[in-house]
């Protein structure tokens, strides 16, 4: 976060709130999230399902159905305000300035069109004057760039003729067709084999260096974040609970929920006898979010009823530069608990 601090971030999200109207009531999927991201940096957004991480990214893409969704706050992309933009204007940015990669590349690619056709379409949508040959050449270059062998042959194949990892490479190639400044990857490796996961993450890191784009990596896996991200935003119940550099959050996490996430990932370097500790309980309902800190019903350190069950903790800066935590526990107490009770268990990276 000290990186490029002089210039404004390419993506700036301010107090973003996303609400859905459903038959059961209003869902507060994202409830006041703020963060900034510079080009060339990778932000990992981490949380369980329902934490609001995917909803946040879809809001940046402008892909929520306006008829059922209310979005307030600010999303500034390269200086342009996205909230309230018409679909026609948003459409011109989608795929050109901000592109997205999805979790399951098999279902995210159209089963009835060849890979080449889908890539060409992505290019020509934003380059209407480009000839088919130019678009095809661009598709070939991109397939080659993401490491797909024999791209000229593969161009004519359908998604089902590719392996899972190759398919995700196709998705990445498609997202890069228009050289976007921001790339959002929503669980890009979750559906893939472990060995392929590492290749895809490496590829993303390579491409970022080459294209100098900003990347938002959405995942539930802190291990993935520690491999590729520069910064981490931990989300819970639609709110940001901890935000900082990877080093800050992974080495000195200060939110009890982050501790829980760290304790539930296996470590190659830790003691194999140590049992993984899943976080007790379930993610909260987003219709009836618990009062106060949404995490307090599952938090072993909550001070109940006051203030944890009564007041929503603000995401406040701690001593370390740029590290922010939303927790009612006093900072010295959090540092003490982490060093005494959590860190020595050997789960910290």
């Amino acid at each position: 976060m000290t990186h490029d601090a002089a210039s404004p971030p390419y993506l700036q999200v301010d107090d973003l709130r996303v609400r859905f109207n459903t038959a059961d009531g209003e869902v507060r999927a994202v409830d006041g999230v703020s963060f900034g991201l510079h080009r060339g940096r990778t932000l990992g957004i981490v949380g369980e399902s329902g934490s609001g991480k995917s909803v946040t990214s879809l809001a940046v893409m402008g892909l929520h159905d306006p008829a059922r969704t209310r979005i307030t706050g600010g999303i500034s992309l390269g200086g342009r305000q996205l909230v309230g933009l018409s679909d026609g204007d948003m459409r011109k940015l989608r795929g050109r300035d901000v592109a997205m990669i999805f979790q399951d590349p098999l279902s995210a690619l159209h089963p009835f069109y060849t890979v080449g056709r889908q890539l060409v379409e992505a290019y020509r949508t934003h380059h209407p004057d480009a000839s088919k040959a130019q678009a095809r050449q661009r598709a070939l270059d991109m397939l080659d760039r993401v490491g797909i062998p024999q791209p000229d042959r593969r161009l004519h194949q359908y998604p089902h003729e590719f392996s899972g990892g190759m398919r995700q490479r196709v998705m990445i190639a498609m997202s890069l067709m228009n050289d976007p400044a921001l790339l959002i990857a929503d669980e890009p490796t979750t559906a893939l084999d472990v060995t392929v996961q590492a290749q895809i993450l490496d590829l993303l890191a390579d491409l970022q260096r080459e294209f100098h784009s900003a990347i938002i990596l959405i995942t539930h896996d802190l291990g993935v974040v520690s491999q590729v991200a520069d910064e981490v935003l931990v989300m819970y119940g639609g709110r940001a609970v901890e935000h900082g550099t990877v080093a800050q959050v992974m080495r000195g996490p200060q939110h009890p929920y982050t501790w829980g996430l760290l304790a539930s990932i296996p470590s190659l370097h830790g003691d194999p006898e140590v049992e993984l500790k899943p976080i007790k309980g379930n993610p909260p309902s987003l219709i009836n979010v618990p009062t106060g800190c949404a995490f307090h019903p599952r938090c072993a350190y909550a001070m109940k009823p006051e203030p944890c069950a009564a007041q929503v903790p603000q995401l406040l800066a701690v001593q370390a530069d740029g590290h922010r935590v939303a927790c009612h526990l006093p900072e010295p107490e959090r540092i003490r608990i982490y060093t005494d009770e959590i860190a020595h268990v050997g789960v910290a990276q």
Binding site: M61, K92, G95, S107, A108, L109, H110, N178
Partner: peptide, 15 residues
Amino acid sequence: AEDFVRTARAKGLSK
């Protein structure tokens, strides 16, 4: 509700 329709929108295609 299929993912590939969302992909089509994410590419910047018109509705």
